[in-house]
């Protein structure tokens, strides 16, 4: 049988009295994040081609890709060439309450239009604000 020592943690407890607290003063102090943290998903409209791969892989059905309300006009026809169709523009809607921040959409996007950010303070008082519409 091992020896029994009462108050074995006492020395450690006394030593802790003279140490800095292990907790941080969040929210007054910013939380420290590791470099590859997966937070809110950001969207860059210029890069998106509307392939909807992100929608297909999302496990939480949290992302939607919709046609933008205002579409750019078709480029002026050049003589001697077939008229080029207008490049379509897409908006991205992310439901922050459904998203599980897995970043699978970021990984699958062929044009790197999506990216993980460091933003994790996403609580809202208004439920509607959880639906982010990136235009």
């Amino acid at each position: 049988m091992k020896k029994k020592i009462p108050g074995r943690a006492l020395g450690e407890a006394v030593r802790q009295l003279f140490k800095k607290p292990a907790t941080s003063a969040y929210p007054f102090e910013k939380a420290k994040l590791q470099p590859k943290f997966r937070g809110r998903i950001a969207f860059e409209q210029e890069k998106c081609i509307g392939c909807k791969m992100c929608v297909r892989v999302c496990p939480a059905k949290a992302i939607e890709i919709v046609l933008s309300a205002d579409q750019p006009a078709a480029p002026a026809p050049v003589e001697g060439q077939a008229p080029a169709p207008a490049k379509k523009k897409f908006d991205c809607v992310i439901h922050l309450d459904r998203c599980v921040y897995c970043a699978q959409c970021v990984e699958v996007c062929p044009k790197k239009a999506l990216a993980s950010t460091d933003d994790f303070e996403l609580a809202q008082l208004d439920r509607k604000a959880l639906r982010r519409h990136y235009k």
Partner: peptide, 23 residues
């Protein structure tokens, strides 16, 4: 912190993908 460093999150590290790991 180690897990966040490797996977990107503290609890759901999501390191696995079909055919290997993501990071």
């Amino acid at each position: 912190d180690c897990l966040e460093l490797v996977g990107g999150n503290r609890v759901h590290y999501s390191i696995n993908t079909l055919g290997g790991v993501r990071r």
